[in-house]
Amino acid sequence: MSAPTATARRSRTRWFALGAVAVAGAAFVAISVSGIGDNLVYYWGPKELRAAGDKAVGATIRLGGQVAPGSIKPGDGVSNLEFDVTDGTALVHVVATGVPPQLFRDRIGVVVEGTMTRGGTFEGHRLLVSHDNKYRAPADKNVDIKTLMRSTAGLEER
């Protein structure tokens, strides 16, 4: 290929590069700052669920938060496990069916999929446990049980 053609081609591909960077940058900015996150909600916290009021009743939604300490009431057999989900300010009572994951305990983060009832109880039919970004060795002197058990990193960030 002759030299002028190669130079012309190179200047054309440079424009392609700048165009592609512009498209990628625009996409990134649109997703990061445009508030698209307000429409892409993986779960609601208890406060948001309470604020939604009647709008939340009936629809399948996810509720995320922490299991309120001392609130777990094992139900009959494996069904109707009851507990409260909290974000520190609001509280939602949950009646969940199914077997909870092994890590389920007081103060752990949970994401419950289900529906809100008129009575104000959340009927969960899918119970997921989330863990935070802390990993502790048994003999670690720096273990701080309080921070260790604060879970659901998504809530913690806010």
């Binding site: 892409l40 909600v41 970004n133 802390k134 990993y135 060795a137 720096n142 990193a153």
Partner: peptide, 18 residues
Amino acid sequence: WWNSLHQAQSTPDTVSSA
């Protein structure tokens, strides 16, 4: 940015030195 099931990034402070 968003509520997620996956935990946030760990740092050396949140992971035991072991």
